[in-house]
Amino acid sequence: MNPADPARALELLSRSPVFRGASPADLQPLAALGTFRTLRRGEVLFRAGDALDTLFLVSSGSVRVYRVVRGGTRELTLHVEGPRQLVAGVGVLGGSDPAPAHAVALQTPTEVLCLPAAAVREQVFGTPALAAAVIAALARRQAELLARLEGLVFSELGERLAAYLLEHAADDPHALPTNSDLAALLGTVPELVSRKLGEFYRLGLIQLERRRVRVLDRPELERLAGRTGGEGRASDPR
């Protein structure tokens, strides 16, 4: 743990969407309790079944939250939390249930602000403006999670990969995660991710060099990301 830095903690809390609308006075008691923790890529923040006695707010880097499925042979990424996002906020604020999923750092370094869960709940539930902001933010997060799960169930790999590439196209060229991490994000296996990336490359949809990718044919990727059938230029193994 890094030493407490109330001023930096307050700035992070104020900029977080989940606390948007709360006044600095509402957030100062939380900021005073916060400590910063730095993680390396792959370092575990918590595991499924752990007690959720700490609320984590990402300061820099990113954290992947995932479930292990199919008897431990597959990982299903529920969401990736970046700067100013809460990790497992619903579980922490909801009570004393254990963590329903695992959380690991995706980048080196990843820094999180650590806040005692009990103190957060007391401050949130005792401050109407803060409670309203948190409830609205968590409702949005739940809706995003349901949309993601719907996409994993009903869309094909080509559609999911195209959507991922378009989502990150503003940062072109951007570094791709490893095929294993990307497969976990997309709900598939590394071999199919590698095959689909190669197919997109051969079709001229993307430029790919040393894990850095650039979108070349946005209209075709948008078509792939928005379609519901399986036909088209790029075949779609799951």
Rank of each mutant, 00 (worst) to 15 (best):
A32L: 11
L33M: 08
L33K: 12
G34E: 10
G34Y: 08
F36H: 09
F36N: 07
F36T: 07
F36A: 10
F36G: 02
R37A: 14
R37N: 09
T38G: 06
T38V: 15
T38Y: 00
T38D: 10
L39P: 09
R40H: 09
V44C: 11
V44R: 14
L45F: 08
R47A: 12
G49Y: 01
A51V: 12
D53R: 00
T54I: 12
T54R: 15
L55D: 01
F56H: 15
F56W: 14
S59D: 15
S59M: 06
S59L: 10
S60V: 07
G61A: 04
G61K: 03
G61Q: 06
G61Y: 04
S62H: 01
S62Q: 15
V65A: 11
R67E: 15
R67P: 03
V68I: 13
R70S: 13
G71V: 09
R74M: 14
L76F: 02
L76C: 09
L78R: 15
H79M: 12
V80F: 02
Q85G: 03
Q85T: 02
L86C: 00
V87P: 00
G89I: 07
V90Q: 09
V92L: 03
L93T: 08
G94H: 02
G95R: 12
G95F: 02
D97R: 14
D97H: 09
A99V: 06
H102G: 08
H102A: 11
A103C: 02
L106F: 13
